[in-house]
Simulated assay, not measured.
Amino acid sequence: MKALMLCGHGSRDQGAMTEFGGLADKLRARLPDWHVEHGYLEFAKPVIRDGLDRLRESGAETVLALPGMLFAAGHAKNDIPSVLNTYAAANGLRIEYGRELGIDPKMIRAAGDRIKECLVADGWQDGDPLHDTMLVVVGRGASDPDANSNVSKVMRMLWEGLGFGWGETAYSGVTFPLVEPGLDHASRLGYRRIVVFPYFLFTGVLVRRIYDQTDNVAARHPEIRFLKAGYLAAHDLVVETFVDRLNEILEGTNNMNCQMCKYREQVLGFEAEVGLAQESHHHHVEGVGSSADCTLCDTVCTGACRAASREHGHGHQIARGTGHVHHDHDHTHEGGQAHHHDHDHGHSHGDAGHHHHHPYPQADHPLGPRSMKAGAMPNADVSKP
């Protein structure tokens, strides 16, 4: 049988999980000859191994797996391969792993459609010049400079392809610039209309935060019209890109971009991470803290569990009575066995007995999350370069 496993990260937000499930349904309709299952690393159910169980119980001896990720950072490079290889070794199942969606003409066209929808709602007609309008593309943000730079490339292709007057990139977390300082900077460039486009697959806490922060900046600059474009969702071209990634596995061309991988090459500023062991840190939170278990929120995650965990002084805490985990990704914990995947990185995705997150070298940047939380530059003009 033909078996496909779609692997997502997971979210505390029920809306995001409904949308991811909808994407899986569209893939099932697009691939009627395939048995398609989906699962998540954390914060949602079913977990990835549940989907693998169903495929194996249906008779699959080989499973093709795709990361439901825009870019290849830690989750696609480390965590998902670790889960897949652990399962394969324990159950005698062959699993072939594909690559992330990445920078792809179909994905750029899907993003262009979302931006155009936003502009049309503001009275723009296709073909009208956009020289008075600025585009700000907001990515997730990662400690991997290759993934971050991909967001900038997406922005440039959209900027140039649609003919905006100017374009900038911001990030929702981890790296810099964050959304508010990025938009404060953009507001000084003289454009009377700014389109903010979250380059995300699905809704969730981060997308709502991007929109909220856009509203904050818009309130400070009533002379500028801020437009909030929709995220990608299960656009038909997104579905087709997943089909392309599946075909790459079948053709044997499913190689990640290793030329700029910080674990393989000496990327400027990240030289200490060459050859660093990569391993998953999600085994202990699989399925924990899912929206189905949380009693603090309804279907929309409000982040109440974060407040609960802060009250108890923990960065990685289960809110009382909820089974809901707040996961800050800044901890060290014990690990398991060695894992590898087939992208010829020249390094192990394994574990030598414990797991350590290598520090992000720009963590204290004045426009980044840590320094913002600490209030390091309370009186600084963050709009200046």
Rank of each mutant, 00 (worst) to 15 (best):
residue 370 R to G: 04
residue 309 S to I: 05
residue 110 A to N: 06
residue 300 V to T: 15
residue 146 D to I: 00
residue 223 E to W: 00
residue 128 D to H: 08
residue 30 R to P: 08
residue 258 C to Y: 09
residue 200 F to T: 06
residue 332 T to R: 05
residue 230 G to P: 07
residue 279 E to T: 15
residue 256 M to P: 02
residue 200 F to Y: 09
residue 383 S to A: 14
residue 151 V to C: 02
residue 340 H to L: 14
residue 383 S to H: 05
residue 136 V to M: 11
residue 173 G to E: 15
residue 19 E to T: 07
residue 356 H to K: 05
residue 114 R to A: 06
residue 52 L to F: 04
residue 155 M to E: 11
residue 27 L to Q: 05
residue 237 L to D: 08
residue 122 D to V: 05
residue 177 P to C: 10
residue 344 D to C: 05
residue 6 L to I: 15
residue 350 G to E: 01
residue 379 N to A: 14
residue 117 E to Q: 15
residue 49 R to F: 11
residue 308 A to W: 03
residue 278 Q to G: 15
residue 103 I to Q: 01
residue 346 G to A: 03
residue 270 F to G: 01
residue 163 G to K: 06
residue 69 M to Q: 00
residue 319 A to G: 02
residue 192 R to T: 04
residue 114 R to V: 04
residue 113 D to L: 03
residue 376 A to F: 02
residue 74 G to K: 07
residue 179 V to E: 06
residue 21 G to A: 10
residue 94 R to P: 01
residue 352 A to Y: 10
residue 159 W to I: 06
residue 309 S to E: 06
residue 32 P to Q: 11
residue 182 G to L: 06
residue 206 L to K: 02
residue 79 D to L: 00
residue 214 T to H: 12
residue 36 V to K: 11
residue 343 H to D: 08
residue 107 M to T: 15
residue 284 H to W: 10
residue 102 G to Q: 07
residue 310 R to G: 09
residue 254 N to Y: 09
residue 91 N to V: 09
residue 9 H to K: 05
residue 352 A to S: 13
residue 87 Y to V: 12
